[in-house]
């Protein structure tokens, strides 16, 4: 994989989340109607991404799978 393609793969999602966070933080300052709605939607998406990571992280480990494939670098 070329360096540019690799960087694009690594940073695509974080840059998108960063951009929508910035939009959400600013729009509610600009308008009490559409701005609030955009802010709720964008920051809501960021929260949903964080919540889904928490759910996956806090879920119980599959110990049987550890025994089955202890050196597999990905579960």
């Amino acid at each position: 994989m070329s360096r540019t393609r690799e960087a694009r793969t690594v940073w695509r999602a974080p840059l998108l989340l960063g951009a929508i966070s910035a939009v959400g933080l600013v729009t509610a300052l600009l308008s009490d109607s559409w701005g609030d709605w955009v802010s709720w939607a964008t920051l809501g998406a960021v929260c949903a991404a964080g919540a889904s990571i928490c759910v996956r992280g806090f879920a119980r480990r599959d110990r049987a799978a550890i025994r089955r494939a202890p050196l597999d670098s990905r579960s």
Binding site: E6, A7, V10, W11, R12, A13, P14, A49, S52, I53, R56, G57, A59, R61, D62, A65, I66, A69, D72, S73, R74, S75
Partner: peptide, 16 residues
């Protein structure tokens, strides 16, 4: 960055 190159975005290695 270096971490994400190995594990990808959104992946939590729960079995390890």
């Amino acid at each position: 960055g270096p971490h994400a190159r190995k594990s990808g975005f959104g992946h939590v290695r729960r079995r390890r």
